[in-house]
Design a protein around this nucleic acid. Structure first.
Lengths: 209, 209, 209, 209
DNA sequence: CATGAATGAGTCTTCATTCAT
DNA sequence: AATGAATGAAGACTCATTCAT
């Protein structure tokens, strides 16, 4: 599905507002006002508010698959390196589109839209399959443990990142880092998250300390 | 704040619907119909829909503190045992009130209500403080590592549990456990979560494998 | 119709609120809260909000008649003295119960309630009859002009007083009398009104300058 | 502020209903039904019921100023002629828009809306200023008395007209003029009012009988 | 292609009143 | 005699959507 520039502009405006106020908390008029367009345009371009949300998911989820696929096929990397890259890839993706990420959580909590649910599930399934293969490879090579709960492992990655992003202001306050610039703080957070999750994954996957 | 039986009934009905459809996605008429009461009763008892949500938080959050406080003072337990108990306590709490947990996430995502935000933050702060003390004790006794990121650690616990509960249907499907009865599956999930997080915490806190 | 102390208390509370906010702008709950009684009491005591308004009119209008009647029969007074007394009597009555006066105007503007309309009309008719007799007496004695429009004359009295009371704050400001105490200002206003209207009446009734 | 034809139609429908039933006694649905439009249009065009009332005032008060201003500058008229013209102008204005006049009284009684209060006060102030100048001119020319209470004088004009209009049905009944056609009766009333007030003003302003 | 106007269903809340006690 | 609880109707307003242009 291709979107025109104007459509993308509307989608991105909606993305921000949906993230801030929730889907039901955002009116099409809010979106139209913010985007500087006529209210009727939303129905005109997307059919309905619901369809606009789906368009947002199409736009954002479409590109994910490719990056993950290519990763696994690289033979020059060890299984653990691949896992680590996957971690960074996830952190990067979430932090690059925090609004979309918020909406995704919200959509999962209130699982009203079957389209969204499927889209979210597809991402999860794809990730789990890739990681499963990756792990099998590591087990074959004797690097990884025998029994590994892949989904639980991914839940830890996704959950930790989500929780950290969601409560980042609190994290900042607790660590007295309000004086640091926003961008820098986010960079620090990213690094810490990365290290933290890699440690966890090492503990889950391998037998070493 | 004390609530009458009728008020609690309304609150719990609202809790379920808010969890299913989100706050904005639930109308007071929905709640009234489901609870078998007149629409006006919601304003009559709580003042407004917003205040009803706040009442829900008062009802659910009020009792948390006490349990956590008593835990830490028990001298017969080792630091690691205490941490483990905290993990189980958290899992238990979330799984006992999955609806409220959902709402709490939703409320944090769309942080419109300052009352709710404060309530959620209070819980986090309290938890972080308790765990901080606990860790210091373990460090003094030479059991725990020197440098530990408490908030990140808690984010892993909370995030993993949240993510697991939220995507539990997917987890079930992936592990081909649809044939197992709901209650039993939840018990299995609880056990796995408990073991999983305890392993992670051990890796975060201690130097052993 | 006799009212108990409690009923009178409710009526007087209602009187004040009706004057401040209008009949439709005042809820029975407002009245109940202000009077420190239960909401149900108003229906209980008066039957309805409408009936409460009628009760107010019964309470306030009932006593007017007697005073006016006795005035006219006093033979020691000249017709012009009697007219002047009537003027003062009217000013006094309005200024003593400004709230009720406000309500009366409001009720006439929005003539929804036939009971009120009748009550207001009765007062007017009674006044006009009394004044008519009075004027006839003056005409017989050769003091008053032949052709006098009684109703128009009363309209001037009632209208001038009403308008002056209603815009008294503006009057005060225009004459730079904000520094004067409320009570004193009202006394001044009363005196001026009295003199003013008496001059007008003299011009209407007699041929002298 | 300019209004479209449709807006004016809505405003005038509202004007009539507000006059009949009062502001609080009129629902937006009443207005919409009467005007043959959708309820939502009122919010759409004016924002709220309150704003609709304000729009009514803007529409009606806007044009008043100009007429009064030009009057005073005409040098071919004597001060007393000018005053008389002002009287007729006022009577004319009130009788042309009796509904608006009713609302204005109602709005002053229940002075909830600050916008309305200001609008009403502005008219009063303007009138008083114009009349003040006019009187000073008459005094300079030795035609008018020295001490004249301008506001009280205007209160008599405004009050008498208001009172007469408000109780016109009663006036008609008292003078047994029910058989006269409405339009003709209004014409008679207008003439009588005009003469009546001019007599009063002459008594107030000059020393002659 | 794009829009201002219009719609009817829906929102939450408040209303005066009645009921059971 | 008096009240807290409860009710259904009505309140103003906002919603996503459609229509005519």
């Amino acid at each position: 599905m291709d979107f025109t520039d104007k459509q993308i502009q509307i989608i991105e405006t909606a993305e921000q507002l949906f993230a801030e106020r929730g889907f039901d908390g955002t009116s099409v008029r809010d979106i139209a006002d913010e985007a500087g367009i006529n209210v009727a345009m939303i129905s005109y371009y997307f059919g309905s508010k619901e369809k606009l949300l789906e368009a947002l998911f199409e736009l954002r989820v479409g590109s994910v698959k490719i990056r993950v696929e290519s990763l696994i096929k690289d033979d020059s990397l060890t299984p653990i390196e691949k896992v680590n890259m996957l971690v960074d890839e996830h952190i990067e993706r979430v932090m690059q589109k925090p609004c979309f990420h918020k909406i995704m959580i919200g959509a999962q909590v209130t699982n009203k839209n079957p389209f969204i649910l499927k889209a979210a599930n597809n991402v999860k399934i794809r990730n789990a399959e890739v990681v499963s293969e990756l792990i099998k490879d590591g087990q074959k090579k004797g690097i990884f443990k025998k029994k590994i709960d892949v989904v639980m492992m991914l839940n830890t990655m996704v959950g930790t990142v989500t929780q950290t992003i969601m409560s980042k202001d609190y994290y900042r306050e607790f660590n007295n880092q309000q004086h640091i610039a926003d961008a820098e703080f986010m960079a620090i957070l990213k690094r810490r998250l990365s290290i933290h999750i890699k440690i966890l994954f090492k503990a889950i996957l391998t037998n070493e300390a």
